[in-house]
Design a protein around this nucleic acid. Structure first.
Length: 754
DNA sequence: AACTGTAAACTTTTT
DNA sequence: GTTTACAGTT
């Protein structure tokens, strides 16, 4: 497992060779060493080169490396930046000692490992992933005695996450909640926090929020952090949220050596709380700051840059900014319209094959899409054609059942109060502690204010447990505690020698290994291999961690770092160019990367722009930026595809070409034989088809297919229609039926599969 | 207590 | 089309 691999180093070298001499603007950035600095870096503007040169120069000018903090968005970006600073300094270990390059989240996690007792109450906290969050919020809703059908975990969680991203803790939220909805969310939020608290756990957003609060409230911590990090740099600043802004500001506000780098046109995370005003208002926040725009693109050929520029110019809410390329004119981006997703996938694979034949390496190719669901058909096509591919799904490995179980055991070693982890594995492999026993145990633990693991040791027959369950619980708890003791132990006879020892031991002694190795099915065998892979991942982690440390660490510290790192992997981190495979990933995951050949698939209305963003101007502009980001990943070849029909939730639906295609400047794009792409903006929000439905209209329903409207009952609210479908007649409520108006002639030229 | 099969809910995007 | 939740069976 390459969790944190150095990526694209050879392209980067290549890039810096091309750019052996810096432009005037780039030189300005490198030479700006003190005071606030805003770098507006367009795509492919050599941002990473410039930023790493700037850091290297700071160090060569006598700034101690440990005084520099650079914050990035993904682990991958952090690793790459660190490697390139190392390279700039000729890999002299003395010159990079203590240099901190990290993601916001991992930086905060580390800070809380040090100071967490002042705000969480412990430094050995668990980090809850989205599955853990979901079960915690479910429990919270239950505790609030709210109706679970009205209060969906996902929406409550979204509200809580938004609050945390805006640095609103549950007390503040409760104080400010005015309406019914907000008051209930406040209740859930408060209950959710106390659940996390009971488990000594934090979620992703807490890592940021608690760090911000800690820096605000605790003078000693703030001063120590301010003192240490005299130089701060934040990458992808357009995608930071308010809480991150507060953290950065608290660190930098005295010395003001604060450099931010970003591009408002590449802001694609507003949906998760990113606040674009952070970058737009930086100049006002720091009135004496230098602003340096980097507009020249050194990555892509001219047609690609110009086509992308023509697309982004359609955003109204935007600061005009010229981007241009002085590389060769190059090929025009190609648009291809295919019949369905299968033909689309085949076309993409055959274009890739063609380019492979021309000598373009597979690792220089990527296929981008809006939603993960699109990967399946593409994967099938690549597999059938025998073209190696890899899907950027960093978390996929750690989401596997067996891996999650092993990790839960390991988490329990670090944090015996983590009841969620305990609950996950107390009966895996099955040891006779069923649903009833577990319920009883939870009740007991709750009544006696103790953790599940503690409770498992103190319950007895009188509490209503069977002898079998009782024995199993005691054995389970003792095993967990023994692991913990041994990992702690200073005694070299019993102490685990390494992290991998601990992991291996847990896999063996938990019974997971036995579970999958006694007369294994094919699936069991695969699970066993995954467990082995986890052991080797821990070995690999250990080696890399030791290299970066001066002093040896105890297995427990290593384990803690390992589990923390696992919790914070992202999809983009899984991209491993060494494998020589075509990369498949979401548009979001492609941020910051570059490839010779890029395909963006599924350029259709309701796909890109996505359905849920279609009717909101701000969200629509974010979709356009997302498309812009995708296009500007390409160095030399860019293919844009759409399918005339696509399967969605098991039903084949007709699609419309994305409006973004019609926004591309024809001069720079090859529309091939489909030059007749609908140039008009399709289906503006006002003319939703359902508002035009009348007697005799032909409509499509997601489930029942195509039908004819026979009767309409117009009411101010809840108009009903009677529709004759091919097999049935249905009475539907207009507002909820989601009927799509179909032109009759379209029905004829289109033969649906149902 | 553990397993097996069927119904329903569902998908943006992620640290 | 896929995953999860729940009910029913041994």
């Amino acid at each position: 497992m390459n969790l944190e691999h150095a990526h694209y180093t050879d392209e980067m070298e290549q890039n810096s060779v091309v750019q052996s001499s810096l432009t005037e603007a780039q030189v300005k950035v490198v030479n700006h060493q003190h005071g606030p600095l805003l770098v507006l870096a367009g795509p492919g503007s050599g941002k990473t080169t410039v930023v790493t040169k700037r850091i290297a120069k700071l160090i060569e000018n006598g700034v101690a490396p440990w005084q520099i903090l650079a914050l990035t968005f993904t682990n991958k970006a952090a690793t790459e930046m660190k490697d390139r600073v190392h390279a700039q300094l000729n890999y002299d270990p003395q010159k990079v000692r203590g240099l901190t390059v990290a993601t916001f989240h991992s930086f905060c996690a580390r800070l809380l490992r040090q100071w967490g007792d002042r705000i969480i109450g412990t430094t050995s906290y668990s980090i809850y992933d989205s599955a853990d969050q979901k079960s915690a919020v479910k429990e919270a809703i239950k505790r609030c005695e709210l109706n679970t059908s009205n209060w969906k975990p996902a929406s409550a969680l979204a509200a809580i996450s938004n609050a945390k991203n805006a640095l609103i803790d549950c007390e503040t939220f409760a104080r400010e909640a005015s309406d019914f909805y907000a008051r209930n969310v406040a209740k859930i939020y408060t209950a959710y926090q106390s659940i996390l608290n009971e488990n000594d756990a934090v979620d992703f957003d807490d890592l940021l929020m608690l760090t911000a609060l800690l820096l605000q409230q605790d003078d000693e911590v703030r001063e120590s952090v301010q003192e240490r990090f005299q130089y701060l740099m934040v990458d992808e600043y357009q995608d930071t949220n308010h809480t991150q802004f507060v953290i950065a500001n608290l660190i930098a506000k005295n010395h003001r050596n604060f450099c931010v780098v970003g591009d408002p046109d590449q802001s694609i995370y507003a949906w998760r709380g990113a606040d674009i005003s952070n970058i737009l208002e930086f100049e006002e926040q720091f009135s004496d700051c230098a602003v340096i725009p980097l507009g020249q693109n050194f990555r892509s050929t001219q047609h690609i840059v110009d086509a992308a520029a023509s697309l982004i110019s359609h955003n109204k809410n935007r600061k005009e900014k010229r981007i241009y390329s002085e590389l060769e004119v190059g090929e025009r981006p190609v648009v291809k319209t295919l019949m369905d997703e299968y033909e689309e996938a085949e076309t993409i694979v055959s274009e890739a094959t063609k380019l492979i034949g021309k000598g373009v390496p597979q690792k220089e190719m990527a296929v981008l899409y809006r939603v993960n669901a699109l990967s399946r058909v593409l994967e099938d096509a690549f597999r059938r054609a025998g073209v190696p591919y890899s899907v950027a799904r960093g978390t996929a490995f750690y989401d596997r059942k067996e891996v999650k179980h092993a990790l839960a055991y390991l988490t329990l070693i670090l944090n015996p109060k983590d009841n969620l982890a305990c609950e996950r594995v107390i009966n895996v492999p099955t040891r006779g502690i069923g649903a009833t026993s577990l319920q009883r145990l939870k009740l007991y633990a709750h009544q006696h204010q103790m953790s599940l693991l503690q409770a498992a040791l103190s319950v007895c027959k009188e509490d209503g447990f069977s002898k079998r369950a009782l024995n199993a619980m005691v054995e389970f708890a003792n095993t967990c505690l023994k692991w913990r003791e041994d990992a702690h132990s200073e005694d070299s006879m019993t102490a685990a020698a390494s992290l991998a020892d601990v992991v291996e031991r847990v896999v063996r002694e938990s019974g997971l290994e036995k579970l999958y190795s006694t007369n294994p099915t094919e699936e069991d065998y695969e699970r066993l291999q995954n467990l082995e892979e986890l052991v080797s991942a821990s070995t690999e982690f250990e080696q890399r961690f030791m290299e970066s440390q001066d002093t040896p660490q105890t297995p427990l510290v290593l384990l803690s770092e390992f589990i923390q790192q696992v919790a914070l992997v992202s999809d983009a981190d899984a991209i491993d160019p060494e494998q020589g495979a075509v990369t498949l990933m979401t548009l979001h995951a492609s941020k910051g990367l570059e490839f010779d050949f890029i395909t963006i698939a599924g350029l259709e209305e309701s796909m890109l722009p996505h359905q849920r963003a279609q009717f909101d101007d701000d969200q629509l502009e974010e979709e356009r930026r997302l498309c812009f980001v995708g296009m500007t990943r390409a160095r030399k070849h860019l293919l844009l595809t759409n399918a005339k029909r696509r399967m969605h939730r098991g039903l084949t639906e007709r699609t419309m070409a994305s409006r973004f295609l019609s926004e591309l400047d024809e001069e720079h794009v090859d529309f091939g034989d489909v030059a007749v792409i609908n140039k008009q903006v399709p289906m503006p929000a006002e003319t939703k088809p359902s508002s035009e439905i009348q007697l005799g209209s032909v409509v499509r329903h997601a489930r029942f297919g195509i039908g004819k409207v026979q009767r309409i009952m117009r009411r101010p609210r809840g108009s009903t229609v009677t529709v004759q479908f091919s097999t049935t007649v249905k009475h539907l409520v207009l507002e909820y039926a989601n009927l799509e108006l179909v032109d009759e002639f379209e029905v004829n030229d289109y033969t649906p599969e149902y």
